[in-house]
Nucleic acid binder design. Structure first.
Lengths: 135, 135
DNA sequence: TATTGTTATACTCTATAACTATA
DNA sequence: TATAGTTATAGAGTATAACAATA
C-alpha cells in the first residue's frame, strides 16, 4: 500500500531533501525553516512577524522561536513599527546579510543535486503538481 | 527565491498533507509515521524491527519509540524470534488488525482529496518524480 | 472587538552515542 | 567482530491556549 500513497512518497521525498540540506547548507548552524525565514526577511526588509507567519504558513507562535534563534545569532534585528506599535519590523543585520550570501550559494548547490534529475519540462510539471497540493 | 526552490515546495506540500492527515485519519490516536509502520507490519507479519527501520528509512532507535506506542495501545505484539534470538518479530494484534481496517478507510478518504486534483497521467508522472528524489 | 506578539506547554519525528545480548 | 534492539539524550518543527499591548 505505502508505495502507492501520495502522502508516503511526499514524506520520503521531504526527508531526503531535508537530510541533504543539513549536509550541505550552513552545516550545524541552520535548518530549512530558518533559511526560508531569512530569505523572506532579505526580500522584504521590515516585514512583520505576522506576515512571516502568513507567508510561511505556520503559526505566529512558531515564528517567535525562529526569530529568537536568529536574534541570538545576530543575523536579524527588530524595530518597533512607527505606524502600528504592535508590530515588530524585522531586518537582516549586516552580519546576517553577509551570512546569507554563502547560504544561498550552498542552497543552490544543494538544489542542483536534485534538479539535475529532471528535464526542464519535467521540472515545470513537478513544481506545478507540488503547488496544487499546498492547500 | 523560495517559490522556485524544490525543497521549499516539497516542504509545503508535506505540511499540507500532514495537516489533512491529522484531521482525517485516526484523529487523536495516530500520526503518519505510526500508520505506515502498522501497514508494514500488516503486510509483513513477523517483520523484525531492523527491517522496519530499513524499509521506512529511519534509524532503528527511532523505531523503538514507535513500537512502544503501539504496544501501549495494544495494537501490536512482539515475540522473540526462534531463529535469531536477537530479533523481535512484530505482529498486529486482533485489536490492531480491526483498528487498521478503519484507518485504511480514512487514509483512502484523505488521499482522495489530493488525488482528485490530478489526471491519471499526471499522477503517474508525479509519483515518478517523487520517487526520483527519494535518495 | 480584533490583531500582533509573547509565553507556556506539549507532541511528533528524527538523530547520535553508548550499551546489552546474541550471532 | 558484527548485528538487533534498547536507553538516554538532544534538537527540529509544529500546534494550542491564554495573555498583554495596541488598534
Amino acid at each position: 500500500m505505502l508505495p502507492n500513497l501520495l502522502g508516503f512518497n511526499v514524506r520520503r521525498a521531504h526527508m531526503a531533501l531535508w537530510r541533504d540540506f543539513n549536509r550541505t547548507v550552513g552545516i550545524g548552524q541552520i535548518r530549512p525553516g530558518i533559511f526560508s525565514l531569512m530569505v523572506l526577511v532579505d526580500e522584504n526588509p521590515g516585514i512583520a512577524q505576522i506576515e512571516l507567519a502568513t507567508q510561511l504558513k505556520i503559526d505566529k507562535a512558531t515564528i517567535v522561536g525562529l526569530i529568537r534563534q536568529l536574534l541570538r545569532q545576530g543575523w536579524i534585528e527588530r524595530r518597533q513599527s512607527g505606524a502600528d506599535r504592535r508590530r515588530q519590523d524585522v531586518f537582516l543585520t549586516d552580519l546576517g546579510s553577509r551570512e546569507l550570501v554563502g547560504l544561498r550559494r550552498e542552497m543552490i548547490e544543494h538544489e542542483a543535486k536534485f534538479l539535475r534529475l529532471f528535464s526542464r519540462q519535467e521540472l515545470a510539471d513537478f513544481f506545478d503538481y507540488l503547488r496544487r497540493i499546498q492547500i
